[in-house]
């Protein structure tokens, strides 16, 4: 706050249209989200999601018998915190793919909020739709009997 307020040059260098909120305010959101995700990861590392029902049930798995795109996600994150990438991929491949991308995106978010980026690039407009299609495709493919041993081995035949 005081840094940007007392330094008009810095404010002019980062004309992000947020004006009244300083750099510290802009950093609050990504830092808060990062702290929250870190805390969630710590909980999953300590309190194992492998015990049945320890975090509840997935309603889709329970009602349909098929795994939803997020099923196995908590166990996958738990395995990631144990640095077992292969095990994590077995529970939910999407989590293993998305985790490094999420870390990268979070870093870019921080850099952007802090004003470290000289050129602000926008995310590709198709990204949300591509993500949605990938999510749905993963949910469908992991329930195909032929692919189930590969994508959802923990569910059994």
């Amino acid at each position: 706050m005081t840094l940007t307020d007392s330094d008009p040059e810095a404010a002019a260098r980062a004309p992000r249209g947020r004006g009244r909120r300083g750099r510290a305010g802009a950093l609050a959101a990504p830092l808060g989200v990062g702290a929250g995700l870190l805390a969630a990861g710590a909980v999953l590392a300590v309190r194992s999601p492998h015990d049945s029902g320890s975090y509840g049930f997935c309603p889709i798995l329970l009602l349909t018998g098929g795994a939803c795109p997020g099923c196995g996600g908590l166990r996958s994150v738990h395995e990631l915190t144990q640095l077992d990438i292969a095990g994590a991929a077995g529970y939910n491949l999407l989590v293993v793919i998305a985790a490094p991308l999420a870390v990268l995106g979070w870093g870019l978010w921080i850099a952007r909020a802090a004003g470290w980026l000289r050129h602000q690039r926008r995310l590709p407009p198709a990204l949300p739709w591509v993500s949605l299609v990938l999510l749905l495709a993963f949910g469908a493919l992991r329930n195909v009997p032929a692919l189930r041993p590969l994508l959802t081995p923990w569910l059994g035949p």
């Binding site: 049945s52 029902g53 320890s54 329970l62």
Partner: peptide, 11 residues
């Protein structure tokens, strides 16, 4: 209710 019959149902 679900814990008995459904063993592998965590997330």
């Amino acid at each position: 209710a679900f814990n008995d019959g459904f063993s592998a149902t965590t997330y």
